[in-house]
Amino acid sequence: MELRVTDLACARGGMIVLQDVCLQLRAGQALLLRGPNGAGKTTLLRTIGDLQKPITGTIDAPEDSIAYAAHQDGLKATLTVRENLQFWARIYRRHMGDVLQRMNLQVLADRPAQSLSAGQKRRLGLARLLVTGRPIWLLDEPTVSLDAASVALFGDVLRGHLADGGMALIATHIDLGIKADVLDISPFRAQHSVPQAGFEEAFL
C-alpha cells in the first residue's frame, strides 16, 4: 500500500498555489510538510484528501484509505465526548474500542463537548482518526492547542499507527518526536498564479 502524488497542481480561491508536487509515502512512513504560512500546506492536504480536485496531476491511493483531520475538529457542542466519537465510529462502521483510553479521554467521556478546553477538544478530534481505521492520515496542524504531555501522547499514538503499517502526511511546525522525512513545499509554489476560469466558477 502506498500513496503516490505525481505532478500535482492545486488551487485555492481560483489561484494556483502549488505545482509539480511529487511525493510518495509507503506503509509505515510519515512525511512532514514544511513551509511558511500561506505556502499551500492545507490546500495540498485538502486536494489529496479529495475535498477538491487537482488542477493537473494524479493522486494514487487505495480506495477508502484516507482519513483527513482539518483545523476544525467537527465536534457537536451538545453531544458528549462519547456520543461524538461513537457517531464517527458508526459512520465508518467500526467500534470505538479503547480509543477513549488511548487519547486519555475516559474521564471526560460523559461531558458535553462544549465544556471541554481547546486542548481537550483537539484530543477528541484526533481520537476520531483512530476510529476511522484508515491507514493514511492527513493531518493539518494536529498539535494546535495541545500541551506538552498531549503532544507526547499523540506522538505515541502516531508511532503506533506507523508501526501498524499506517502512513501520515503531516503539516506541522513543531517536533512530534517521530522519525519522519521532511518535505519543504516552498519550491513547489506556483510561479505565475494564473486565475482559474472554469465552468464551475461561472456556474456560481
Binding site: 475535498l51 477508502d64 476544525q72 467537527g74 465536534l75 457537536k76 457542542a77
Partner: peptide, 16 residues
C-alpha cells in the same frame, strides 16, 4: 452548523 464546526468537511471525506 456543520460547515462552521468543520464536520461537513469530515462528512465529505467519510464513507457516506
Amino acid at each position: 452548523l456543520d460547515h462552521e464546526d468543520g464536520s461537513l468537511d469530515l462528512l465529505a471525506t467519510s464513507p457516506i
